[in-house]
Design a protein around this nucleic acid. Structure first.
Lengths: 210, 210
DNA sequence: ATTATTTTAGAACAATTGTGCTAATTATTT
DNA sequence: AAATAATTAGCACAATTGTTCTAAAATAAT
């Protein structure tokens, strides 16, 4: 593997493990087995590492998000795509853990992300419209309600990882599943009968707790 | 005002303004007009300042949260109490901005907060029960659904400030109102007819956007 | 083969920050 | 008034970290 990739890999591991504060150019270089001067030749500082990993995540996630534009969207697919997205986000969890601070510091990331979020809102709204048209969801019960729903989706989607770390010691797939279900539950009250039935199949009960 | 209080006041201002990274014992001491050695006599380091402000916030918020235990709870009051809570949180927004990192660092805060969250969950559930009994809400439509609802409340409640900073440049009361409405909208689909009517009064439309 | 380019190691620098220390000053108590 | 305690200023130390620089080594190009 190329040195640049080995660096990114080690950086991701240390960021997730230690946080962006504790992981330094020196500690990462040590893990890769190169001098920190060398690492700085490839990535000038930790911010450049963070940005590179951010772009990597965005690139990996986009296909899932764009599936919301597909015209033949279906509730089960929404469930599965969002599940894959959650798993992906978890692999880059350091990013979502102190996203606010990173965004504040790195201008290019802030601009990129804000633009991305405008797109995401559109995608969510479009996805909802599709689900309504295909009889999975009921139309908006109150003007503005689906706009709130999108906001709720964004908050839960962007912050479930942070929430998990401030709530629990636990890590791993159980946590991911717990919060994925909590997010999908946002949809439930707006589903049609057909939608509710599908929802029950996708989320068989069993204690929802952790 | 006592020196300790003047320090806390300046610390809160700088934390909110600059973030917990940029605000240092030196910069805060300078604002208060004392030497940094003197500041360290009162609070050994910034972490102690953070913790003091955290305890201050918790103390101020608790009365609102405990109102959920009152037996004669009413939807309008829930709305108003949570609104006051949102405003209060906004005054301490630095805390919620990088809570995860703080929690990770300061053991006593982590333990205190986790315990608090167990209590909050109970309070939320109890509040929901009250609202059902008094005819504001419908009973749980699916086992576990209200548990998800509580989780959603906690995520939105804990992270709306962070979300606002990564989404918008804007600050101020409009932002607080926007997210407060988004959180209260979590409740809407579960309200009874009587509840929905009250909800419409409390949240008169007009564009919900920012 | 030799020239040029890329990559690497290691040292050195500068800036920041928390922390501790001492002595002086102020306030409180006896 | 004297003594004790609390508060304050300012210096200095140590550790960390990003950043830069130089020269050597490896790789690619001609």
């Amino acid at each position: 593997m190329k040195t640049k990739d080995r660096i990114l890999q080690a950086a991701l591991r240390q960021f997730n493990e230690l946080g962006t504060d504790q992981a330094t150019v020196r500690s990462i270089a040590e893990e890769v087995g190169i001098s920190h001067g060398n690492l700085c030749y490839h990535y000038k500082n930790t911010d450049e590492l963070i940005e590179a990993l951010y772009l990597q995540l965005v690139a990996e996630i986009s296909p899932f998000a764009e599936s919301a534009f597909r015209p033949d969207i279906d509730l089960q697919e929404v469930w599965e795509q969002s599940w894959l997205t959650f798993q992906l986000m978890y692999r880059y969890r350091f990013l979502l853990l102190d996203f606010a601070r990173i965004i504040r510091r790195i201008d290019s990331m802030r601009q990129n992300f804000r633009q991305l979020m405008v797109l995401r809102r559109q995608q969510f709204h479009h996805g909802l419209q599709q689900l309504i048209q295909r009889g999975w969801m009921e139309p908006e019960p109150l003007p503005g309600q689906y706009d709130h729903l999108v906001t709720q989706f964004l908050i839960v989607g962007n912050h479930w990882i942070t929430e998990s770390t401030i709530q629990f010691e636990q890590e791993g797939e159980e946590v991911v599943r717990y919060y994925h279900r909590a997010m999908m539950a946002l949809l439930f009250p707006y589903l049609s009968e057909k939608g509710k039935q599908m929802h029950r199949e996708l989320a068989p009960d069993g204690k929802s707790g952790l």
